[in-house]
Design a binder for these strands. Structure first.
Lengths: 192, 192
DNA sequence: GTCATCTCTTACACCTTGTCAAAGTTGTTA
DNA sequence: TAACAACTTTGACAAGGTGTAAGAGATGAC
């Protein structure tokens, strides 16, 4: 739904290089300067400003890119197929995998002053897919339907984050985190 | 366990004024400059630096103060008394009340580059109280004991945050949020 | 090959953090 | 109450960040 209509191939390459560099640099140093990002992209700071009007908008574009990545990986996971519980776990796994590739970035940047509106759009992109699975599970009776889907969506995302954090902090192994997350989710959803 | 040994009354007043101002200013503008905070405290920027070696340490001190506040309110809630489920709800209520007084600040600052160590200490202060209740509930059979207390602590905190956010975002009323939180927590804890 | 587009260089204004030194002021203590 | 130490203020500085601007140079598109 966007942008690059009639842009020179040159410009598109620059934009992509900047975004790539931003993802990489910000992932190890979330407060990196525009200068540093430009340098990593092999470009001048002014060129960055030619593509993104401000640092904030650049960060927003980075988040958009990561969200697209995540959504794509989720959509490759055949969410409409099989038991809702399995689809749910596949979706969470897809999300965790892409998020795991950019741990620092997602941890630090997501909580920063980006746009509240864009934040909403990014959120709904993945939330919608989650909601569809939960609703399907409630329709088929796999999940209890006494809790509203929107609430369960929010809670599921938070639980997944919790599991990731506990694993990253070394308080749980990967298997422990997976198991606890699965058990907790099923209790919440009233699965089975 | 700290600091102000033999400090002039003057200095203590300044320090308190700075922290008060910081809480107030940062709550409406989380990225306020040290200058702005100093001005709100009726003090020069250099005076702030006389008390706190850096902006970061000032923010850490602010978080410490809010944590103390929260912990105090929690300890006033008779957590060792009555059914664990009730104590749990009282604790969450105490936390939500103090956190509700500084919504922006807690939302934005907590995720910022403060110290990872101090962050841990702050976290354990409230987590310990939560953990004690959960363990008591598991001992008495009020709660299921198949999930480890540390995990349940982390999840409970996250659920409480979720409820607050959904309420703040206008997607739930206060009562709805309370009810959903209660139901979800009890499912997770295997209450009853 | 021309032209519009994109990039680079250089430069600037402004803000913020952190540091320093010297001159004030105020609390404490004798 | 006088003297001293502790605290605050004023003024100034360096370093580094964001955002803007103009003009010269390079390069893709047609």
């Amino acid at each position: 739904m966007t942008s690059s209509r009639n842009r020179r191939a040159d410009a598109q390459r620059s934009r992509a290089a900047i975004l790539d560099a931003a993802v990489q640099v910000l992932n190890t140093r979330p407060d990196a300067s525009v200068e540093a990002i430009a340098a990593a992209a092999g470009v001048t700071r002014q060129t960055v400003y030619a593509h993104f009007p401000s640092r904030e908008r650049l960060l927003a574009a980075v988040l958009d890119r990561l969200t697209e990545e995540t959504v794509a990986e989720m959509d490759a996971a055949d969410l409409e197929v099989g038991p809702a519980a399995d689809a749910l776990l596949r979706l969470i796994d897809a999300g965790a995998r892409t998020a795991g590739r950019h741990p620092v970035l997602l941890q630090k940047i997501s909580a920063l002053p980006v746009s509240p509106q864009g934040d909403q759009e990014r959120h709904t992109a993945v939330a919608d897919r989650l909601k569809r699975i939960i609703q399907r599970g409630q329709r088929t009776g796999e999940f209890d339907d006494r809790l509203p889907p929107d609430w369960l969506v929010a809670v599921t995302i938070k639980l997944a984050h919790t599991a990731s954090e506990e694993r990253d902090a070394g308080r749980l192994t990967g298997e422990e985190a997976d198991e606890l997350l699965r058990t907790s989710l099923f209790r919440l959803l009233g699965a089975k």
